[in-house]
């Protein structure tokens, strides 16, 4: 299963459909708080995470996961339009908190879809 966390409904929905077309079960959440709540029920292997969300943003979500020691359970891909936090994201990537990040607007590369496929099927 894959979880898509984005507060923009059209983006959330189109990503859900894109991944559904690839044959994955998809759960969506509208902010960090919603995602944390749903992670108590579903167990996705991959999380696609937006950063700028209200009320609970992506960074706060990551912080909570880390505090609970849960971030290792998920392969987290950050999607953001905020180029100002690239250094912070690189550091998180090197620490293994997130798997990778994409700067919006972006198109899913074949490589990324293969990587997701690999994570979900193993």
């Amino acid at each position: 299963m894959i979880m898509v966390v984005d507060d923009d409904e059209p983006i959330r929905n189109s990503l859900r459909l894109l991944l559904m077309g690839e044959g994955y079960q998809v759960e969506t959440a509208s902010d960090g708080g919603d995602a944390l709540k749903k992670l108590g029920i579903v167990k996705p292997k991959v999380i696609l995470l937006d950063i700028m969300m209200t009320p609970i943003d992506g960074l706060a979500f990551l912080k909570t996961l880390k505090e609970k020691g849960l971030q290792k359970n998920y392969a987290i891909f950050v999607m953001t339009a905020m180029t100002g936090i690239v250094d912070e994201l690189k550091e998180m990537q090197s620490k293994g908190i997130i798997r990778d990040f994409m700067i919006k607007p972006f198109v899913f590369s074949d490589r990324l879809l293969e990587e997701i496929h690999h994570i979900v099927t193993t």
Binding site: I11, L17, L18, K104, P105, V107
Partner: peptide
């Protein structure tokens, strides 16, 4: 303006992948 465009972009990407599949 960008939000619906991003959504349309993802959807067209899905169409082209699904067409092949």
């Amino acid at each position: 303006l960008r939000t619906p465009l991003a959504s349309i972009q993802a959807t067209t990407q899905m169409f082209s992948r699904n067409l092949i599949r």
